[in-house]
């Protein structure tokens, strides 16, 4: 464990807490893409298949459980909670995310560390995570104004993978045979997708204006 990875995990956890805060405090999920949340729930379920077979550390196990439980709770809440689901922007959240699922799985069958069930699902979760934010970014552009909590949610979610890239660079130079090129390349793509959001987020923060993404 290094400071970059720990900071990344804490930013990831913060993004989920901010999202939970927004949904429970405002009893609203307006501006949140249910499709992105469904994809994230899948990412964690596909990635943490080794939850009960490989014990890494207490921290690792607890964080995996937190991510699985929180992501499924958010999906359940946006679909089932009578008050929250009324504010879901169904007509704006129209990204065809099944393509992202199919493409990620196809790529995982072709490019993986080993052609085994667990490795294919791990690679699938890595590729899917890189593109899972797309429905959310499209929804933000369509809905124009972005409320503070939603903006902070996306910001922390983007920042977490940026810190993971620093973690991979650090591990590359400090550990002998460290090769995580699937996660690294995918992480670069994932962070690049946030580039324009980060730019407009920084502008809105600098000018202290409301965050607006150009349609």
């Amino acid at each position: 464990m290094n400071i970059f990875r720990f900071a990344g995990d804490m930013m990831h956890l913060t993004s989920i807490l901010v999202l939970l805060l927004k949904i429970y405090a405002t009893k609203s999920c307006s501006g949140i893409s249910l499709k992105t949340q469904e994809l994230y729930a899948l990412v964690f379920l596909a990635r943490y298949l080794d939850l009960f077979t490989d014990f890494i550390s207490v921290y690792n196990t607890i964080m995996k459980l937190v991510f699985i439980v929180s992501s499924t709770a958010i999906v359940w809440c946006m679909k089932r909670d009578r008050v929250v689901r009324r504010s879901y922007d169904k007509q704006l959240d129209t990204f065809r995310h099944y393509f992202l699922l199919a493409a990620s799985f196809a790529l995982a069958l072709l490019v993986n560390e080993k052609f085994t069930f667990q490795e294919i699902f791990w690679a699938f979760s890595i590729y899917l995570e890189a593109v899972a934010i797309l429905p959310q970014l499209v929804l933000l552009q369509r809905s124009g104004n972005v409320d503070n909590l939603t903006g902070q949610y996306v910001f922390f979610l983007g920042a977490y993978r940026a810190f993971y890239i620093l973690n991979w660079i650090y591990r590359y130079f400090t550990e002998t045979h460290f090769s995580r090129w699937i996660a690294c390349i995918s992480g670069l793509v994932q962070t690049a997708l946030y580039a324009d959001f980060f730019y407009y987020y920084y502008i809105s923060w600098k000018n202290n204006t409301k965050l607006k993404l150009p349609a």
Binding site: D50, D54, M63, E113, K114, T116, E119, R180
Partner: peptide, 10 residues
């Protein structure tokens, strides 16, 4: 040896 590299990252 395990059939997969243990993934120690989240």
């Amino acid at each position: 040896a395990k059939d997969h590299v243990t993934k120690d990252e989240l």
